[in-house]
Each structure stands twice: as C-alpha cells, then as structure tokens.
Amino acid sequence: MPLLQVRNITKVFGALIALRDVSFEVNRSEILGLIGPNGAGKSTLFNVISGFHHPDKGKILFKDTQITGLRVDRIAGMGIGRIFQEPTLFMQETVFENVFSGLHRHYREPAWKAFLHTRAANREEAASKKKAAEILEFMDLAAMRDELAANLPHGHQRSLAIAIALACEPELLLLDEPVTGMNPSETAVMSDKIRQIRERGITVLIVEHDMRAVMSLCDRIIVLNLGEKLVEGTPDRIKNDQRVIEAYLGKQVI
C-alpha cells in the first residue's frame, strides 16, 4: 500500500489554476522528487498535502485515510512533517529549545499531568531532552545547541528546520528546497543526510531546483509544469524526456 496517494488534486486561486488534476503516489521508504519550472505549483502541492490549503477538487489519502480538508495540526499529528522554503523556526529560542518543542506530539502522559509535574511526566520530559540531543547530533547541530536560531547561518537554519521536523517522528517528510543555494560540498552533505533519514524509515518527498542533487538522490521524480503533472519516472527517464527539457527551456525565455 502506498504511503501517500494524491488523487486528482485541483487548486484554484481566483483566476489562477495552481494545480490541475494532479495524481501520483508515494511509496514507503522511497525518496520522491518533485521538480518543475517556477510557478509549476510545487509549493502549492506541499501546502495542500500538509493542510495549509484545501483543494478544490480531488482527495489525498495518507496510509489509506482521507486527509483532505483536515487541519494542519491534525495532519501533522498523523505523521506528516514538513519544512518550508523560507526559514521557519522559533527564532527567539535556542537550537535545543527549537528541537525540544518539536517533540510535542509524542508525549504519552496527558497535558494536565504535565502541568502537575508528576514523576511520570517529568521522566518523559527527561527522555525527550535526550531524544532532542540525539536529533541534534544526527543533524550535526550539537555544537550550536545554545545558539539562538536567529543567529545561525542560513545552511544551519535549514538543518535546524529539518531537525525540528524529525523531532515529530514523521513517517512522511516533505522537504521544500532543502539544498537550494548551497555549494556543491554542502549539497553533498545534505543529500547524505537525506539518505540517512530514509534509512531511519522515513519516506521523503522533495521539492528542489538543484537538478544534480535531485538526480542523484531521488528514486523517482515527478515533473510538474503549469500546475499539471507532466511526467513521472526514474531520474534516467526524466533526464532525457523531451517534454521536460522543453518545459524548462520554455520557461527560461521569460
């Protein structure tokens, strides 16, 4: 059973058709790439999947359950995590506090017990602190744990955003442009990280512009253009597909 099923999604903003009848599936443990020229609708698709926008037509199934039209936090609670294109962090908190906040949804003890600071609740908190530290280690951010998020360089902010998303323990992770603007060595490091994330059992859906990263990282690629799905397939197939090349070249002329 595919982890995520996107069926006939259409999203319109006034006169602009952002997504038109888009359908595809995401299988467990795969790294799926979503590419397309600017304005193709990639970010809109992410917003629809994670619940920030509700589609006008179509439905989305996550683990065979309908998630179309659910609230953002409901969808997140079901196991879908995401990062945003712009650095979206708790700027006034430290790196550690940022990731610690991400662990919110996995507490077993109810909130009122947390308020009373019962022994069980306190134990859970301590365990969470350990988990947060471990995630920081994984994303190579441990050295900066007491830095304010606002003071981090851009690349580390990106890593922090991913770390926060990982803290939710998602089954599906939506990465919006994780390596855009990075130099080749940074890109290689991040790509490696993404592979490690997959090895932890997390399915990854990536929107990216960096072609090389996408080609080397993704098992499959879906190409969007002007809101419609153009083609999907393995990197090799996509690389040489005439329609894809035209779509990109056509856009350059702007």
């Binding site: 994670s50 953002v72 936090d73 962090l89 919110h104 949804r105 939710c168």
Partner: peptide, 11 residues
C-alpha cells in the same frame, strides 16, 4: 513565535 511552525508540529 510561529503559529505556522507550531501547526506542523501537531500543536
């Protein structure tokens, strides 16, 4: 600090 981010964390 960020209602958007908080939402994606299940809050």
């Amino acid at each position: 600090l960020s209602p958007k981010l908080a939402g994606t964390l299940g809050i």
